[in-house]
């Protein structure tokens, strides 16, 4: 049972961050390698809030949203938008994405070191321990948070004028601007939300893994696997993708590490990796890219014919 709960908690983190990864991908078609570091920024914001302001990590969720959201917004305004304006191609944007990742991760290392020396306490490998020994409260909180965020994001994107405009702007920027939508602002909002959600995911991370400046980066593989599984251009595909990846990794390694295989649990990342590679090679556009209707009708026709 504990394994299932742990898998759920892990999946919540993956889901929250993958939604953002997909959201930034559809704005500029660039895979944001720095997305994992945005998760780490959220974790460190919660830690800083807990240590310096004395509030609980949960109370720091809005702060983490803002901090990671601002970092994402800054990378949009300072890196991607200027490059996009200069007509940069996909490879250039990817090099920029890799550079941004290096900058953010190195900055997190600097931050951790500076805080460690100035506060005389460790800012690496930290964990949020829950008081009162209630081990599973963060699982409940992270699940409720994930559900609330998914629902409100859905309502925002489909039921508000601004949300529909945002979808319109990412689908067809030139048409959107021709009907009066400020595409640039819509993209900026997408990056803000994407970063913010990564920050929220980051708050939950230190509840289950010792966190340091590299932890979020290590999640990138899972996020990409989740986003690709759901379809890199389908925001809510990332929700399904995230749960599939998170659950199959935790439950999968639980099964593989037991008898008869007794595999080391350190090979965990191989599971999302295998899923990612297989997916990319058979359905590179993700599950949403598969033409289900055609596939189903072909299968049913096959059944009729054989019957």
């Amino acid at each position: 049972m504990n394994v299932v709960l742990d898998a759920l908690a892990f999946s919540n983190i993956i889901v929250l961050s993958s939604i953002g990864l997909t959201l930034t991908y559809i704005t500029l078609k660039v895979p944001n390698f720095a997305h994992g570091d945005l998760v780490t920024i959220g974790a460190y914001t919660a830690l800083a809030a807990a240590r310096l302001l004395g509030i609980t990590p949960y109370a720091a969720i809005p702060l983490a949203f803002i901090a990671s959201g601002m970092a994402a917004l800054a990378s949009y305004y300072l890196v991607y938008r200027p490059l996009d304006r200069r007509g940069a191609g996909i490879v250039t944007l990817m090099i920029a994405s890799m550079s941004t990742e290096v900058i953010l991760r190195a900055s997190l290392h600097i931050f951790a070191d500076v805080m460690t020396t100035s506060t005389k306490s460790y800012w690496r490998g930290f964990l949020f321990r829950e008081e009162g020994g209630q081990l599973t409260s963060y699982i409940v909180v992270s699940t409720i948070t994930a559900i609330l965020i998914i629902i409100s994001l859905y309502l925002f994107l489909h039921r508000t004028k601004y949300g529909v405009a945002l979808r319109a702007a990412v689908e067809n920027p030139s048409l959107a601007s021709a009907i009066g939508i400020d595409v640039d602002k819509a993209r900026a909002v997408s990056w803000l939300i994407a970063g913010g959600l990564a920050g929220v995911a980051g708050v939950f991370m230190p509840f289950r893994t010792p966190t340091d400046p590299e932890t979020g980066w290590a999640l990138l593989l899972r996020m990409f696997a989740a986003s690709v599984l759901g379809g890199l251009d389908a925001v809510f595909g990332a929700v399904i993708g995230g749960y599939v990846i998170g659950l199959s990794e935790v439950l999968g390694i639980y099964l593989l590490s037991g008898p008869p295989l007794n595999l080391s649990t350190a090979y965990r990342p191989a599971i999302p990796f295998a899923i990612l590679v297989i997916l990319l090679l058979i359905a590179p556009r993700g599950l949403s890219g598969v033409e289900w209707r055609r596939l189903l009708s072909r299968m049913s026709r096959g059944v009729v014919r054989s019957g």
Binding site: P82, I103, D113
Partner: peptide, 22 residues
């Protein structure tokens, strides 16, 4: 410096690469 200077170097190099691309 209260941190490893290499991190600063990486940060500077990251910025340099982005500026080069621009």
């Amino acid at each position: 410096l209260p941190f490893d200077v290499n991190y600063l170097y990486y940060t500077v190099m990251g910025v340099a690469l982005i500026l080069l691309l621009m």
